[in-house]
Nucleic acid binder design. Structure first.
Lengths: 335, 335
DNA sequence: CTGAAAGCGCTAACAC
DNA sequence: GTGTTAGCGCTTTCAG
């Protein structure tokens, strides 16, 4: 199944076959058709490796790195990226980092070995990964970050305005009269979680909303952590009037805990969440939240990468996406 | 950044560099170390294309084809596959078919061009795709199907026992005393949907459960379809006592319709669903359902493929996975 | 232990 | 129009 074999079988030269199959001029229509038909008949598909190797050009492949496909947020981003890439004829390797710097670097090396044209990544924020991305970038590899980025690296990125989102939520509960706040946080390694938590604490302080240390729970960005954290908060004798949950999977767990303990929302406890996923609308009552736009994030990341590859101008290096407050019925009006 | 460049810089022969870097014997330790250090210093990563081209061996890459990453079921399968592949050092191209035969065939061709070692696919069931897979398989490509398969093709597959799952659900509602049943079905192209629907209809008939034609709704496998279908059923003056929903995304939509219309489950209407995803547990009341095992499906698909690639024996060609009935509180007891 | 030469499958530049 | 030649980056003989 190679151009050489076809050439031999048809008694012509390999270069003629190459020209015929790749639509280049310089072959008579008769011969071209004969070659194309024969190639189809024997089920020939050109070897992309050999072709890209010889052309010294692009491979038409990209690498995408995400921490977790199980998270609907990332699944949605990937879906949007896929859409753009397909319409531009790119294939991509999907790499899962599990937030593990070693695993991420392993994948990066392998992507480089496969000579991908570019990399779209939600990077694990760690010194090792930072150094590696930095090296790659200075050796002219095309990289676009989404969801997270390294503040000290000048690599294009598409990130949600997390501070804005948190402030919108806290403003809302403030207006509803809440003065005590609990928080279900994320993995301590998550920069996203760190930013959201810090913004929440600072802004709550500014508005004189009390956050007792024992009201801050969460050890991880998983459903399990959300579940256990919410249970811990609910079992305290002095509870906050409202709990802020910092992402989608943890809020799923928190909601499960609430269902299980049959806590009444918003009468006994109010709830607000970062991220608007599937379940926020069908919970009883529907959850007030701040919505990121993972679809837009994916589209922008992919388009930016492609623009850079095509040497087109990229308008902004760092894109900050707005969040949207969606008011539902999970916050009790106290005033 | 090539072996030749390293060889030139160090004044040795490319073949020596190759031996040194790939851990082959026949290089003095001193020279080997010198070469390895130099390679690291200049950030050299071997060209996987050139290497696999020359070795005439495997590329270490696979292709995965799914209809939709937005669907949590497939996201979970992918996650499991990724886990197995990573531990066996395989990279993979992720391809999304959108249930479009043309798109799927386009992706298949591109996977072949990239000379993937094997393909794991939840195929779109269509004559065109069937013929294409059939051709690929007879030309010795390694393929494993999951979630769906072509009954007339002898290609290994890992599929859920859909009939069993539906029967478990219908048995349950029968025991609870229900005599009238509505169904929210899937896309007419979905073989999974077809099997589930037919089994439900036949088995209901057998148990003398009535299914009026206007109680069968659904035009698609999406959230939207589930939402609109449930609304249609709820608005009828003569309604079934229980509604069976045939997958996860449609049940999400159905639950949204129920929340919106404030229908009381299970007092006004009972619910059972195929698939146990995130939201079944946090809905009020929690949804009785039958659970597939997407994780197991992914693990088996990946392991089977790897076994075949390693010429190990595959125990069973067609694996049928059991379903599990999870009884919660969405079905009213009528007797 | 190291070097030389050949070739994986393909394409681009150059002949005729 | 078609053939010839060279070489992308790598590995694998075979020499020395």
């Amino acid at each position: 199944m190679s151009i050489t074999k076809i050439a031999k079988d048809l008694g012509v030269h390999p270069s003629t076959v190459s020209r015929a199959l790749s639509g280049k001029p310089g072959v008579s229509e008769d011969l071209r058709n004969k070659i194309i038909q024969y190639a189809e008949k024997i089920g020939y598909y050109p070897d992309a490796r050999a072709s890209s190797l010889r052309k010294k050009g692009k491979t038409g492949t990209l690498g995408i790195i995400i921490p977790d496909i199980g998270n609907p947020f990332f699944a949605t981003v990937i879906k949007a990226i896929e859409d753009v890439l397909y319409s531009h004829n790119y294939n991509f390797f999907l790499c899962v980092s599990d937030e593990d710097p070693e695993k991420e670097i392993f994948h990066l090396k392998s992507l480089i070995s496969h000579r991908v044209d570019g990399i779209i990544a939600a990077p694990t924020l760690d010194n090792k990964t930072k150094n590696f991305y930095s090296k790659l970038y200075s050796s002219k590899k095309t990289i676009v970050f989404f969801d997270r980025f390294f503040p000290t690296l000048d690599i294009p990125s598409i990130v949600t305005n997390n501070e804005q989102g948190i402030k919108k939520l806290i403003n809302h509960i403030y207006k509803m009269g809440h003065k005590t706040l609990g928080i279900i946080s994320l993995s301590p390694e998550s920069i996203t979680g760190k930013i959201r938590l810090e913004t929440a604490l600072n802004y709550a302080k500014k508005l004189k909303i009390t956050v007792q240390p024992e009201w801050i729970q969460g050890f991880d960005s998983t459903e399990e952590s959300g579940y256990l954290s919410m249970k811990k908060i609910l079992k305290q004798k002095r509870r906050p009037s409202v709990v802020l949950i910092l992402n989608d999977l943890t809020s799923l767990g928190a909601l499960r805990a609430i269902s299980e303990l049959k806590a009444n929302v918003p009468e006994e406890i109010s709830l607000v969440a970062f991220d608007d996923t599937y379940w926020n609308q069908i919970f009883n009552p529907p959850i007030t939240c701040v919505k990121q736009d993972p679809k837009e994030m994916g589209i922008l990341a992919a388009k930016n990468l492609i623009n850079i590859l095509n040497k087109k101008n990229v308008l902004k290096k760092q894109i900050l996406l707005d969040t949207k407050l969606i008011i539902r019925q999970s916050v009790k009006k106290l005033i």
